[in-house]
């Protein structure tokens, strides 16, 4: 496994955010999250203040991991789309470029068909931004490289 860091710079963050905002508008969604497959929030847009975004990111990643495990058991590589239907709000979760998880929360103002269509359209754009981010990082550690023993010790003072 590649143990290099996943580095997200301002430029790619801005690009992700702009795609998420467009998706939210076009899909009439309440909130859109982009999550790293390991469970860390990358970006979000919409009425996110009502949600515990850290917990949501972790559980979405757990959800994708568990269904991926189920997929393997029946000989599938991955289940790339999950849909959870609630009484008021619904959640559409999809995998982007096997690395990111796109979470769309919507209510009756939208529909699963519309969300699925819009998600499919933006997934390629997100994958391109991700590829650019990985190329841009080029194994560079940035802030991590510069850490000193003193920096690490200072966390525990």
């Amino acid at each position: 496994m590649n143990r290099a860091h996943f580095i997200l710079r301002e430029r790619e963050y801005g690009a992700f955010l702009s795609v998420l905002r467009k998706l939210r508008t076009d899909a009439f969604a309440k909130v859109v999250f982009l999550v790293d497959k390991n469970g860390t929030l990358v970006a979000s847009t919409g009425e996110a203040s009502g949600f515990d975004t850290t917990a949501l990111a972790s559980l979405a990643a757990g959800n994708i991991a568990a269904t991926g495990g189920l997929a393997n058991l029946i000989g599938e590589k991955e289940f790339s789309i999950l849909f959870h239907e609630g009484e008021r709000d619904h959640m559409h979760i999809s995998l982007v470029a096997e690395r990111l998880i796109l979470v769309v929360i919507f209510d009756r103002r939208s529909s699963v068909g519309l969300v699925r269509l819009r998600v499919r359209r933006v997934s390629e754009e997100l994958a391109k931004i991700l590829a650019a981010a990985q190329e841009d990082a080029g194994g560079e550690g940035g802030v991590i490289e510069e850490l000193t023993e003193e920096d690490i010790e200072s966390l525990f003072k």
């Binding site: 590649n2 143990r3 860091h5 710079r9 301002e10 963050y13 801005g14 990358v42 970006a43």
Partner: peptide, 13 residues
């Protein structure tokens, strides 16, 4: 794999 976010200035492990 750690995640370094320059936008929110966070290191996640």
């Amino acid at each position: 794999m750690s995640f370094i976010n320059y936008s929110s200035r966070e290191i996640n492990c």
